[in-house]
Design a protein around this nucleic acid. Structure first.
Lengths: 234, 234
DNA sequence: TGCCGTATTACGGTATCCCATAATACCGTT
DNA sequence: AACGGTATTATGGGATACCGTAATACGGCA
């Protein structure tokens, strides 16, 4: 089993990602950071210039993002930034509630002291971002917290799904975050989750996690209703 | 708000799918129907000949399927049929259990008499496929049953996720189906789900649905263990 | 038999080319 | 000035041809 040559330190770096992969990442990042408006057309030749790659690469990247749901191809028009589907947003939150609750339950079963400490740190980072960062920073810190939670839980597949779901409601997440008082409330909700995990109380962790998402869902739905009221007139 | 011209019936048909879309479907179908072996290399130019389209189209289709998880791009080699990840299979079943249980619960709340009748029909189709069809037929009938369930439940997003998950464990589904006695057991499990829905008993429907997936999961995991035992020798 | 060098294969990527069509600008007529 | 039709442009869908490079197959030589 053991090789005479250790794997560590001597390996040739094969990780040079392809241009296409890096293009996908760049575009995904740009979309998730609102560098394009929702519904904005993504003109291939323009992207070629701005990204410095050929049209082939851009097109393949767009196909990938289309499958992820971040880009939609409008018939007879071409690729555009996917417009958020408000009718599906509530469903997304409901699914997240299920998955995150299960993750919290499993994390409570698996976590050791070091894991709990890491969760506490990650939550502190969220609070710090709330205090002095942009909503993007909060989003990033929150993502890292949940990545940690799902990792501790050993739920890699669920985490992939959650990331895909979050991408679809990214704009809503940013909106709910910049809501007044959201910082304190969210902090308290997170603390309840962490404390339950620290107590190894899976049931309570699942419940706290579920309720946290339900809260955010209600917030998001009410904001959506406000927006649609605005549109149809006062 | 009302247009002088009704939307219905007069619309111009814009649904002519692009070559790329049809190529994606063809390839996806071929993979899910085991026309390629797992891990088999998908040589672009060969596919061009066999599909009768240009490399541009084939490559974009492969990128799309890569994002779906059906195709993996091997470094320094190129595209290949994704090899099933046995370590993730259990997770996939667990997530399905959650989502399908929720769908069953919601379906129990929403279903009217006609819906229940449709579910009964769909289950009959599954049994018919078990009796006189191939495992592919069973897979197809089962998919239709669940599509119906999720539609009644109004859970379109969850259904999308489940379809994506099922694609990743397609081979396992086919294996568990061709297991002896699976027909009768599965039939009984489905009947319990349907009866609970007919009684409008959401809790029981969720429970029956959850347990059904748990059963299949145990079956799949034990089959995976058998296979890996075979590989390491008796 | 074992090894080495070469030929082949195939991908990632680029650059063009063509065609169909949607949107827009333009222009002449009434 | 308003309308109707036409020319232009922008853009995507799709097809080729080509290059450099890495993996692999092969064939000859020791």
């Amino acid at each position: 089993m053991d090789l005479p040559l250790e794997d560590t330190g001597l390996r040739v770096d094969r990780s040079t990602k392809t241009l296409r992969e890096r293009t996908v990442e760049r575009l995904r990042d740009a979309i998730l950071n609102f560098q394009f408006k929702a519904g904005e057309r993504l003109v291939e030749r323009t992207l070629c210039d701005r990204l410095g790659v050929s049209r082939t690469v851009v097109r393949e990247a767009l196909r990938h993002l289309e499958a992820e749901g971040l880009v939609e191809i409008l018939p007879q028009q071409g690729p555009a930034v996917a417009r958020p589907d408000t009718s599906q947003a509530a469903q997304v939150y409901e699914i997240r509630a299920l998955l995150e609750a299960e993750a919290a339950r499993a994390a409570a079963a698996n976590a050791d002291e070091a894991d709990v400490a890491r969760l506490v740190d990650a939550n502190r980072a969220i609070q710090a971002a709330f205090a002095e960062g942009t909503s993007r920073d909060v989003l990033k810190a929150t993502t890292e917290f949940y990545e940690l939670l799902f990792t501790i839980a050993g739920k890699s597949v669920a985490w992939q799904l959650v990331q895909g779901l979050n991408a679809r409601i990214n704009y809503l997440r940013a909106m709910t975050i910049s809501r007044p008082n959201r910082s304190a409330d969210a902090g308290a909700e997170m603390v309840r989750i962490i404390e339950a995990i620290a107590r190894r109380d899976g049931k309570a962790a699942a419940k706290a996690s579920f309720e946290h998402v339900e809260t955010v869902k209600r917030l998001a739905v009410s904001m959506l209703e406000d927006v649609s009221l605005l549109r149809t007139g006062p």
